[in-house]
C-alpha cells in the first residue's frame, strides 16, 4: 500500500469514528472508554512483529515481548471490564 492509500483509510476512519461515537448513548460513555482502551491495544500487532524473530534474543525482541505483555493486560482487562459493566445495565422488569 502506498502512503496515499493509507492516508485515505485514516481520513475515512476519522469520519466514521466521529459519527459512530456521537451515536453512543451518554449512559455508556464509561464502557466506551474501556472498550476503546481495549481496541487501541491492537498495537499488539507491532509488538508481535518485534517479538517474532526466532532465536535472536536482541534488545528489539525483548522490547517486543514486553510490549506484547503490556498490550495483553489491556486487551484482556479492557474487554473483561467492559463486559462486566455492560452486564449490569438492565431494563425495568416490573
Amino acid at each position: 500500500m502506498d502512503f496515499i492509500s493509507i492516508l485515505s483509510i485514516f481520513v475515512m476512519a476519522c469520519f466514521v469514528g466521529y459519527y459512530v461515537v456521537w451515536s453512543v448513548t451518554p449512559a455508556l460513555h464509561t464502557p466506551l472508554m474501556a472498550v476503546t482502551n481495549a481496541i487501541s491495544s491492537v498495537i499488539i500487532v507491532g509488538a508481535l512483529i518485534a517479538a517474532s524473530p526466532a532465536g535472536d534474543w536482541g534488545v528489539a525482541k525483548i522490547l517486543g515481548l514486553v510490549a506484547v505483555a503490556l498490550a495483553s493486560v489491556n486487551i484482556f482487562g479492557g474487554f473483561a471490564v467492559t463486559e462486566r459493566m455492560l452486564a449490569m445495565y438492565k431494563k425495568k422488569d416490573r
Partner: peptide
Amino acid sequence: LQNSAMIITGALVGSSG
C-alpha cells in the same frame, strides 16, 4: 506498519477521546 486495523482503530479511538 501499513496496517489498516491499527489505522482504523487509532482513528476511532482518537475521535472518541
